[in-house]
Every structure is written in structure tokens, then in C-alpha cells.
Design a protein around this nucleic acid. Structure first.
Lengths: 338, 338
DNA sequence: TTGAAAGCGATACCAC
DNA sequence: GTGGTATCGCTTTCAA
């Protein structure tokens, strides 16, 4: 058995309460006893038992992080940053991979409630309003629908503006017939489809370019690997002789699939067709030609979300319930002016 | 305040002990009371308080996962798999990013001890034998030096064989003068440098190829981004007219840097120089030409390590203290026969 | 089949 | 400055 404050108290000939307060730097004690207690604690290799402390104080100094899966670049960076932030503030972080599965998500939430986490960072929620499983545990969402009315805090990017900006970028590089590729699931998880579509349309409109419903926008099911679906789509478009000179993809994998199809058909990039993705991941950085993409500033997303959650944990009020993080277009080979 | 077993007991007119045992499916009770208790618990939205339970039972149902940083592909997949495995067995996982920093690592270990985790998966340890901070908490290491004598369990790949196999692969594809690029840190964290060097040398020897000390092996400091160091190195070798027709890199990033240098110097790949990396990450999959690499089977590493740790937690004995997971060479463009 | 009570390790209030 | 004691929510032994 590990040594407890009682053991220390016994050795020092004082009470447990004294030990507790001294080790927590509370109360007024003679320097002598303070030194003595600390020395004994050190010698005995004492470490607090957090389960006991938490039971008593109703504070665990833990948070939960919900992501679909950490193996994905975007989520893993956020996990790391959030975890780093909270470690600096004395918290340990539980990692939960929900795999976009509602049942799993519920199990994890249940776990976290049992474990009495002080707060939750949600980068995965599909549960949303259905049930309030978390009681009054504060939640901050990143890039996803907020959980419920009690926890509306959301840190995200402006999808409307991202798509608008990317589309406009292509237009400025000379594109006249642009198509948009996106995922159906985008809608489910982020309720941002609306912004995406209007962002695209508005950009075309602003530059007097035609928009053909339905042949300008393609929603992929996203059931298989998205880049494969995308590659197939673009291949078919080419076979069907659909004319286009620009592709906006709402994800780097989608963009990569498109790139593969274009290359396979020996279509000159960026000469004949220009292409842009989103997320600024390795999928856009590594291919040849490299793919223009949008950096969503995950560091900021994670930092701001963490700060917000910490405030909520400390019962501080937040100024805003929704915070938008800026994005940057990272220009690469696929949209160089031709 | 959340509802406790006492609240339920009061409502049902029974004792707390009864409620406890029924909710844990222990003891013998009349079906009537069982149903009643469960119904009330359900109605009241009861959830166990794990801090209390853990305090009493000295079991937290949590584990800690130590990695240098989850934002790295290799580690994030392992994290996910380990976490998934333990979730299925009723455990929640703490994520700790040590950033290869000894002090951070100590802080995390200290945290985990305080939080009374039942076990630890170590994919990060540089602490090794120095101090036994974890007491008798079981540890299983993946691809890293085991923590200490008490916890020797290690799941890893056979680096000697990996390098031997890759080198031999290049030889079979026609290479006659092969160089090896590796990182100095490889040695520190994995104590496998020896295996790497002899694997390389033995492969050359087995095929009667010359080995030139020191011009066949290059150790990079790995202080900057490793692919940049590697790119610089290869560029210099080319400038210095060092002749070679094959490169074995002990990491995909190193290989990518080499690839970049070769391409920049318009050297035909795989015609004039062949190249292979390690880890089978996006860094080898996405570039053009794609880079031959070695899949280290992270799924197996994670699975076996998790199973071992679970056994140790349950006080079961392990058959082996060191388990080697098979690797596979993934042949890609950079080593096609020319 | 059920209840009473002790105890896990810490905190905190109140008394001296 | 320091000690005594109740308490956090749960499990577990023993008795009834």
C-alpha cells in the first residue's frame, strides 16, 4: 500500500489535517513543522491519492476529448494542443475515439460522467440535442454542432467564407467553369453545407460566372475512402465530356482523388484545370503537383477552445458563444496562373 | 448534486449495501427488489461515482498512454487502437504527449500515479532505468526502451531484420552501392542503432557488396525537420560526386528529403538511384514517385501491447517479455526494377 | 435475502 | 498553530 497522509502524520506526531493543509500550502503553521512534514513526505515518496481527493472535493482535474479518430491529422493536432494546454493547467485528458458512431459516443459520454470529468472538448459530436447526458459538465465544441442548448460554445471556421475565398482564388487565377465537390456527411456533422453552397454560389455570382444546377455541385456519399469516390467522379465527368477548368474540393482527400483522375487522363494542371482542397494536410502538401489548400489554423481552434473550457470550468462567463477562427489560403502548384 | 445509492436506497426503503450489490449484479436478492432498484436507478438517472468506487476498490479502470506526440501518424494510430481496445474492456485512456522531454515525461508519470491508473502503455519513454516512479503499476512498451527491470515487456519490430530486408530488396533490384541514412536519436530512444547498422552491413556482406566506412552510413542529428537535413545531405553528396545507386532511409521523412534532393538534381528514380524508407506513412505513399517503404504493422503492435497490459493488470503472467511483430516491405515506384 | 457499520484517503469546519 | 471529527459515495464483511 502507498503511504497516506496518516502515515506521515504518525511519523511526524501531528494530525492528518495538519499534513493535508501543509502539503496544500494552506493554513498557518510554524516553519518548523512545515519543513518537517515536507521532508517526511519527500522521504516516504508520498503522492496524493487523487481518487480520494476528488471524492472529497468534487473536482477531478481531468477533461475528456471527443474526436472521431485521432489517426486523422486534423483531429490529432487538436488533441495534442488541447492536451498540452490542459496539462499546463494541471489537468489530465481522456482521449475518446467515437468513430462517428452514435452508440460509441454515448458510451464515452457515460464513461466521462462516471469518471466525473471537469469538462469536455467535443470535436466529434453527432449526438447534439437529443439527450443531455452530461448534466452540468461544461462542453466546448470545435468545428462541430454544439451539444445542446446548455453548451452552445463553438469554435470553428467560417465555411461560407472559406469556400467563397477559395472559389474566388480560382476565379482570379483564370477559371471560368468551376465545380464543387463535397461530402454529404459534411451536412450531418457540421451543419455547414448551407454555408458551403452559398459561399460557392456567391463567389461565382460576384464574378458574373454561370452556375449550373445541378451540374456544378457534387455531393459524395463518403462511405468508401473519399479520395476514391472523388477520383471516380472526376474520371466520369471527364468521360462524359463535362467541361470545367476549376475544382473546389471541401477536403484535401477529395482534392487528391480529383488530382489523381486528372493526372491519369493527362490533363494539364494547372494549365487546363486548376484545383484546390481544404485542411492543408499532407494530402495537399506531398503530391506532385502540390495542391492549393486552406489552412484552418487548428492551433488557434484548439487554443481558444481550451481557454473557453477552462473558463467555464472555473465558472467564469464567456464573452461569446461562437468564435470564428481565421483561415489562410495556401497557394501551391495546382492553382498557379497559367 | 447527483443521485447516490443512498438516495435510491431511501426511495426503495432498503439499505445502500443492497443497492450497491444489485447494481453490480452481486449477491442473491428477490427478483422483486432487483427490478425495483433497477427501475428507480433508471428513473433517477443514477450513474456511479467512479471516484468513490475507485477509492474503495483501488481500481480506476483507466490507463495512461505515453507518446512523444499524437500528431505523428505512427503514434496516433497506436493511440487509437490502444484506446479502442481498452474501451472495449471498460477502461478509459489518458493521453500524454511527452514531446520527448524528460521533465514533461516525469510530470506525466507523476500525474498518472496520482490518478492511480491501472496500467501504462509506453511509446515514448526516455526515462528508462533512472527512477521507478510508477511503483507497481504495470507498463508495456511499444517500440521503445522498456521502463525498468520491473517492467521489461516490449512489443516491437526487428530493426535488424527490417534494415536487412530493405537493403536486400534494393540489392535484388540491382543496386550495387547503397548508402544508409539514419537519425542519431534512433539510438537514444530505441537502442536499436546497433541492429540497424549490422542489418545493413550483413545484407551487403551476404551479397558480396562493398561497405565503405564511414562513407556508407550517415547519421543525422534530427534537430531540424529530418527531411530537410536529409535533403541537404543528399544534395551535398551529389555535389561532392559521391557515387551511389541506392538509399536506405530509416524513416519516411528522411526518404522524402532524399527524394526531393534527387528530383531537384534531375536524377532518374528508380533508373539511376533507388530509394526506400520506413513506416509506410503518407510521406512515402503520396509523393511522385511513390517511395518503397516498410509497414511496421502498428495495428499488431497496439493490439498485442494492449493484450499484454490487460493481462498484467489482471495479474496474469505473460509468456514472453519481448514480442516481435512482423514487417512487410511495400514496394513502390522508387525501387521498381530498371 | 437483507441491513449495519467499517473503511478507502483526503478535506474542512470548528474547537482549543 | 494544531487536533478531532464528520463527510464525500461506494464496497464489503458479518450478523441477523
Amino acid at each position: 500500500m502507498a503511504v497516506s497522509i496518516y502515515d506521515i502524520a504518525k511519523i511526524a506526531g501531528v494530525s492528518a489535517g495538519t499534513v493535508s493543509k501543509i502539503l496544500n500550502n494552506k493554513g498557518k503553521y510554524s516553519q518548523e513543522t512545515i519543513d518537517n512534514i515536507k521532508k517526511i513526505a519527500e522521504e516516504q515518496g508520498y503522492v496524493v491519492n487523487q481518487t480520494a481527493k476528488s471524492l472529497r472535493t468534487a473536482k477531478t482535474n481531468t477533461i475528456g476529448i471527443l474526436v472521431p479518430n485521432v489517426s486523422n491529422d486534423f483531429f490529432s493536432t487538436i488533441c495534442m494542443d488541447v492536451q498540452d494546454f490542459f496539462h499546463e493547467h494541471g489537468y489530465t485528458s481522456y482521449l475518446c475515439n467515437t468513430h462517428d458512431d452514435l452508440n460509441l459516443e454515448k458510451e464515452y459520454l457515460h464513461d466521462l460522467v462516471q469518471k466525473k470529468v471537469d469538462g469536455v472538448i467535443n470535436v466529434a459530436g453527432i449526438l447534439s440535442q437529443q439527450e443531455n447526458m452530461l448534466g452540468n459538465i461544461p462542453v466546448v465544441s470545435i468545428d462541430r454542432e454544439p451539444f445542446d442548448e446548455q453548451n452552445p460554445t463553438l469554435i470553428t471556421n467560417d465555411y461560407y467564407k472559406i469556400v467563397y475565398d477559395v472559389s474566388e482564388h480560382l476565379i482570379k487565377q483564370g477559371c471560368k467553369k468551376i465545380i464543387l465537390i463535397t461530402l454529404e456527411s459534411f451536412n450531418v456533422y457540421r451543419t455547414s453545407e448551407n454555408g458551403i453552397l452559398t459561399g460557392f454560389q456567391d463567389a461565382l455570382k460576384a464574378h458574373d460566372l454561370p452556375y449550373f444546377e445541378p451540374t456544378s455541385i457534387f455531393r459524395l456519399p463518403g462511405q468508401d475512402k473519399s479520395y476514391i469516390e472523388s477520383e471516380i467522379l472526376i474520371s466520369e465527368l471527364i468521360n462524359n465530356k463535362l467541361e470545367f477548368d476549376g475544382i473546389v474540393a471541401t477536403g484535401d482527400r477529395l482534392a487528391l482523388g480529383a488530382l489523381t483522375a486528372l493526372k491519369r487522363n493527362n490533363i494539364d494542371i494547372p494549365g487546363k484545370v486548376k484545383l484546390a482542397g481544404m485542411d492543408n494536410s499532407l494530402y495537399s502538401q506531398l503530391p506532385t503537383p502540390s495542391i492549393t489548400s486552406v489552412a484552418r489554423n487548428t492551433t488557434q481552434l484548439a487554443k481558444i477552445a481550451s481557454e473557453c473550457l477552462l473558463k467555464l470550468i472555473n465558472k467564469e462567463a464567456l464573452d461569446d458563444t461562437k468564435i470564428i477562427v481565421e483561415h489562410n489560403i495556401i497557394e501551391r502548384d495546382t492553382t498557379r496562373k497559367s
